[in-house]
Simulated scan of single mutants.
Amino acid sequence: MEIFLLLILAYLLGSIPSGVWIGKIFFKKDIRQFGSGNTGTTNTFRVLGKKAGTTVLAMDILKGTLATSLPYFFGISNINPLVFGVVAVLGHTFPIFASFKGGKAVATSAGMILAYNPTFFVYSALIFVILLYITSMVSLTSMISAVLITLSTLVLPFTIPFILPKIDWLLTSIAIALTIFIFMRHRENIKRIKNGTENRVSFGLKAEKKS
């Protein structure tokens, strides 16, 4: 019963619609009615600005971190913490507090990794930042990063065991599932990338030029 209740708590943590609440409380805007209509970090940056975007990014990462840490907080050792993280990711993507229409799972997934293996989180964050600098597109960066991070779960134990000392098949399985999920959530972005109309950020080699 305790595990069941904590899984519900993990879902509720993930369901906190950071972008929606920040927009409504501080800017009197529902970001779902602007830009891409997405509730995540990227649309928040575009619609509400850097401070709001950074706050939402931190909150979305924190949701995954707190949810994944629940077994540590309550002394539960018979279930892998990643299970709680995945439930939080589902909550973020299908939030009960926002009509089950949420973000694209990237930031909350990062928070899950942060709680589970901080070193691997730093490694993954570096991959993301480097790719974002090269592409200047959050969507493309998110998808490529997901693939590379998944492959890394299989390669790092044999190359840089300091980061991942051994193959963690649950981590790899979740990474594969999240990669597929992230690609599915970026279907419209993929179309825009192919058409050359995908939005770019003001960072990196191909940064969006401000008029």
Rank of each mutant, 00 (worst) to 15 (best):
M1L: 14
I3C: 04
I8P: 03
A10D: 02
A10P: 04
S15V: 08
I16C: 02
I16L: 12
P17N: 03
V20F: 10
I22C: 05
I31R: 03
F34Y: 15
S36D: 03
S36F: 08
G37I: 12
N38L: 03
T39S: 11
T39G: 01
T39Q: 03
T41I: 09
F45M: 12
V47C: 04
A52H: 05
T54G: 09
T54I: 14
T55E: 04
V56T: 12
L57F: 13
A58H: 01
M59E: 05
D60C: 05
I61F: 07
A67N: 05
A67V: 06
S69R: 07
F74T: 07
I79N: 11
P81K: 07
L82M: 14
F84A: 04
F84L: 08
V86M: 11
L90Y: 12
T93M: 10
I96G: 03
K104C: 03
N117V: 09
P118A: 07
P118K: 05
L126D: 04
I130Q: 01
L132K: 03
L132F: 00
S136H: 09
M137K: 10
M137V: 01
M137R: 13
S145P: 02
L148Q: 05
T150G: 08
S152C: 10
F158R: 14
T159P: 06
T159G: 10
I160A: 10
I163S: 03
I163F: 05
I163Y: 01
P165E: 13
I167T: 15
S173P: 01
A177Q: 09
L178S: 03
F181D: 03
F181P: 02
E188L: 13
E188A: 13
T197Q: 11
N199I: 07
R200L: 13
S202W: 05
K206P: 02
K209Y: 06
K209V: 13
